[in-house]
Design a protein around this nucleic acid. Structure first.
Length: 572
RNA sequence: GGGCCUGUAGCUCAAUUGGUCAGAGCAGAGCGCUCAUAACGCUUUGGUUGGGGGUUCGAGUCCCUCCGGGCCUACCA
């Protein structure tokens, strides 16, 4: 048994996430966590809401609530949706937790002591009307290059030219529209990533088998131009983790907070501490996952994220941990995903384009979505959600191939033999061959799951479902029953055992359906089928079962068209 | 501008990384079965792997070029 630490990129607090966000980190990480648990490994699966930063403050203001209250509410909403999608986090924390305050301040202090923090005075745009410094992208104005009137301070979206806020003509606050802007001097802390560049570079080089997407993004940042640049890790905001040197004041930095991307990854660790506290466990319980000097040496740490998060996880966060000089556990494997698009364009939170987590659950149970999203995960390139494809996959894979198999086996048994696993008959060549084929395919499936090849894993799982239908077709118990009832009993006994086997191996993908299958069989033995031959004899003659309700219903053309219409534009 | 990824049957995607690999699922066609959610099984029609050029005994797989799609480019997170 191994110990596996799994983290999903933290969803940002300012609203309900869409399916693209879900499939980029939380869902595949859940698949992996569930599979690892199913194989008997000790798993710590961590996620949290990422609560700091300007967008959170603005979203709270828009909602007319204090930011702390807003975040608490949105955390509860996101936690509820996570439960709705059956995301099996051991802990779903908050980056605003006391634990994260302490650890972030501690690590900043360590970095300072190691000489890896630089204090830099710089000029930033301040808006008296908004009462805040404005990040570059919150300043709008006319592009000096192309004349576009709504260019942002970081880049003109029209001509893609990189801009400095002071380049803009007629600059104004994107928040209030105020043109009363001034440039103020302010001091900030920079993490001297440049000083750690060689160490990080060597560390990235030492990794094998990481997705190209992961390493290519990291190398680009390491080698582009002058190489890895220092990064500002503080902001002039109210909401965040106050800048401190461990538990001491940091002179000159009063009133400033750490930048969200400094404290967010640290929350992976802090959330594990939150988990320990929530469960009444001592610090040693979480430190054995994170401190290589306190037991984390044998931990395998895997991170899941969308490609936009890769720089922070390959560079900034490792720099933070390495630079601390303390033996923190570094990530062993980074699984990154491309984007999921929606019907010819991008999902858009602002435009309400696409399907959001709450809406998805209002339409169909989570298993339908889990299956489609996982079997179409954007691994090698961006992928696309279309209602036609969703309908086809759900109806064929879930309803026809798996659901109907369970239905035909259980109903046939009930009508011919009654509500218990029938006795009689012996396995022949066909059954032996089936067990061998299941073993073979299962080993392939396991290899894909181990390697986090999500789509292939789904395809292999489906192929194993198909084997059940092929077997029934060849064995034809409905025909055999007429001449040799005992042989038919053996065949259908195998079929019922196949249902249990399917429940076990399908559980990481479709946990609710798996539970329904197992419940109908009156069984609670979730042991992994190491050997199909034995697993297919697990339910013995006389064991009672019931016919489950329809596992998956079909999506009608009318529903498909209705949904396509409903989610094409404006949310609500 | 620079960098990276990507373009394979109508659709969604595979090809152990130069050597029978041109494949699977869906859709289409034909046949079979009747236990089942008009479900299942078998067979089968589709591609000169975006265009062009090159390297090689041999290239979706390497190089050049052109065309198309996407992402990143450090103050959104």
């Amino acid at each position: 048994m191994a110990r596996v630490l799994i983290t999903s990129a933290l969803p940002y607090i300012n609203g309900i996430k869409h399916l693209g966000n879900l499939v980029g980190s939380q869902l595949p990480s859940d698949l992996y966590a569930r599979y690892m648990r199913a194989r008997g490994h000790e798993v710590m699966f961590i996620c949290a809401t990422d609560e700091h930063g300007t967008p959170a403050e603005l979203a709270a203001a828009k909602a007319g609530k204090p930011v702390a209250e807003y975040c608490a509410e949105m955390h509860a909403v996101q936690a509820g949706l996570a439960r709705g999608f059956r995301l099996s986090f051991d802990h779903f924390g908050r980056s605003s937790s006391p634990q994260n305050h302490r650890l972030t301040q501690h690590l900043a202090g360590r970095l300072r002591a190691a000489g890896l923090i630089a204090e830099v005075s710089e000029k930033q745009v301040y808006s008296p009307a908004d009462g805040r410094f404005l990040p570059d992208r919150y300043i709008e104005g006319t592009c000096p290059n192309c004349g576009y009137e709504r260019a942002r301070g970081d880049q003109c979206e029209e001509c893609t030219k990189q801009l400095d806020p002071t380049d803009l003509i007629n600059p104004r606050s994107a928040i209030s529209g105020s043109t009363d802007l001034e440039v103020r001097e302010t001091k900030h802390l920079y993490l001297r990533q440049s000083a750690l560049r060689d160490r990080i570079d060597a560390w990235i080089d030492s990794q094998t088998g990481w997705p190209v997407l992961t390493t290519s993004i990291a190398r680009k940042w390491l080698h582009d131009g002058d190489g890895l640049q220092d990064r500002g890790i503080t902001r002039d905001l109210d909401w965040g983790i106050p800048v401190r040197d461990g538990t001491d004041d940091w002179p000159g930095m009063e009133g400033k907070v750490f930048y969200v991307w400094f404290d967010a990854p640290i929350e992976y660790i802090s959330a594990t501490a939150e988990w320990a506290e929530a469960n009444g466990l001592p610090d040693a319980a979480w430190r054995r996952w994170w401190r290589t000097d306190e037991g984390a040496d044998d931990v395998r740490y895997v991170q899941f994220m969308g490609k936009d998060n890769v720089p922070f996880h390959t560079l900034s966060f490792p720099a933070t941990l390495m630079g601390s000089g303390e033996p923190w556990k570094l990530v062993d494997y980074i699984k990154s995903f491309n984007y999921l698009n929606y019907d010819g364009g991008q999902f858009s939170t602002s435009l309400g384009r696409g399907v959001f987590m709450d809406q998805a659950l209002a339409i169909l149970p989570s298993d339908y979505w889990r299956w489609w999203l996982l079997s179409h995960a954007p691994e090698s390139s961006d992928s696309e959600f279309t209602w036609e494809n969703f309908q086809a996959s759900v109806n064929k894979d879930l309803a026809d191939v798996l659901g109907n198999f369970v239905s035909r086996v259980s109903k046939f048994c009930l009508s011919k033999f009654g509500p218990a696993v029938p006795d009689g008959g012996e396995w022949g060549d066909r059954e032996t061959a089936l067990a061998a084929e299941i073993n073979r395919r299962l080993r392939v499936h396991e290899g894909c799951m181990e390697a986090m090849e999500v789509r292939k894993s789904a395809a292999e799982l489906r192929a194993i479902w198909v084997l059940g239908n092929e077997y029934l077709q060849e064995a034809a118990p409905w025909s055999v029953f007429k001449s040799d009832p005992a042989a038919a009993a053996m065949q259908i006994r195998l079929g019922l055992n196949l249902v249990r086997l399917y429940a076990v191996i399908s559980r990481p993908f479709i946990p609710d359906a798996a539970a329904a299958m197992m419940a109908a069989l009156g069984c609670d033995d979730w042991s992994w089928p190491e050997d199909a031959s034995a697993a297919l004899r697990l339910l013995e003659p006389g064991h009672g079962f019931s016919v489950p309700d329809m596992l998956f219903r079909k999506i009608t053309d009318a529903e498909r068209d209705d949904w396509a219409q409903r989610f094409s534009g404006t949310r609500g």
